[in-house]
């Protein structure tokens, strides 16, 4: 069997998982919020793009609007819930975003019926053969964008004042506030950036997979698996994690005997990484405290 098409499909989906993962990670490191609503925000952005294109809006404008809507939703949530969330523990922060995810899912199911929708970006219409696998331009965009966002985020964190502030917050929130970092501004920026990334991923995933509210909302699971592989710290490892989950899923689905388990791949990978990482973290914390 020619496995190349599966590797290509896996890399593409994986790169979007990674892209999403970067958005989740930046927000998590800056605000301490693990955003379960990341997929739902992406779904909302994708459906808005679909709707505005149906209303005869130019696709590039519709996409820009979708990404902006993603950023706006996340930013507004951060603005409203951020101050309260800052005072509660991480578990409660995460649960609050689960609430947002379900609320957004409810709105999407209310506004859009369950009829078939497809999102075909113009770039998906241009395709070519690579060693027996058909590749389209959107897929190349996915891969390039994931790489670009990882590198861009790393550079921004290192070389911009906002990046420095984010790193300060990630390292020690209280201390960062004491030395004069504008915590609210940094957090709000992180929410907006993360929302925009969610929007981009949602639109790409809708093109590459399915344009359905519930489906896109729950893609947060493989996206989180990528972040778990990055151990909630490393952008590069998140990229690797996303690609690994994507390719793993795709390859598992290539064989009929095990293909039924392909949706379990993110769980399996994340569980293994958590088990390994937890063991190591206990040791590390012990050493630091000693």
């Amino acid at each position: 069997m020619n496995l190349l098409p599966f590797v290509v499909a896996g890399l593409v989906i994986g790169s979007v998982y990674a892209l999403s993962g970067v958005g989740v990670l930046v927000l998590y490191r800056t605000t301490g919020v693990l955003n379960f609503a990341h997929g739902a925000v992406g779904g909302m952005a994708a459906l808005l793009v679909w709707q505005t294109v149906e209303l005869r809006m130019q696709p590039p404008v519709a996409i820009a609007l979708g990404i902006a809507a993603g950023a706006a939703i996340a930013f507004l949530f951060g603005l409203v819930a951020g101050p309260s969330l800052a005072r509660v523990d991480q578990l409660r922060k995460a649960i609050a975003t689960l609430g947002l995810a379900l609320a957004l899912l409810g709105v999407m199911l209310f506004v859009w019926n369950d009829k078939a929708r497809t999102m075909r970006l113009e770039t998906s219409r241009i395709s070519f053969d690579v060693a027996g696998a058909r590749v389209n331009v959107t897929q190349l965009v996915c891969l390039a964008l994931a790489l670009l966002v990882v590198v861009g985020t790393l550079l921004a964190l290192r070389h911009t004042s906002m990046g420095t502030s984010m790193r300060a917050l990630a390292s020690d929130r209280e201390l960062a506030a004491v030395v004069g970092t504008n915590v609210r501004l940094v957090e709000n920026t992180a929410w907006a950036v993360s929302g925009a990334v969610a929007g981009i991923s949602g639109i790409l995933l809708a093109d590459q997979t399915r344009l359905e509210p519930a489906f896109l909302t729950f893609l947060i699971i493989p996206e989180l698996a990528a972040v778990v592989i990055g151990r909630f710290v490393s952008l590069w490892l998140t990229l690797v994690g996303g690609l690994a989950v994507g390719v793993g899923q795709s390859l598992v689905s290539a064989w009929p005997t095990v293909s039924a388990f392909s949706t379990a791949v993110p769980f399996v990978v994340a569980t293994i990484v958590i088990l390994v990482a937890t063991r190591r973290r206990v040791v590390t914390v012990g050493v630091v405290r000693a």
């Binding site: 098409p5 599966f6 896996g10 489906f215 893609l219 899923q249 290539a254 009929p256």
Partner: peptide
């Protein structure tokens, strides 16, 4: 919950 229909299409 399948996201990847490539295997199916290959089959």
């Amino acid at each position: 919950a399948e996201s990847n229909f490539l295997p199916l299409v290959s089959q």
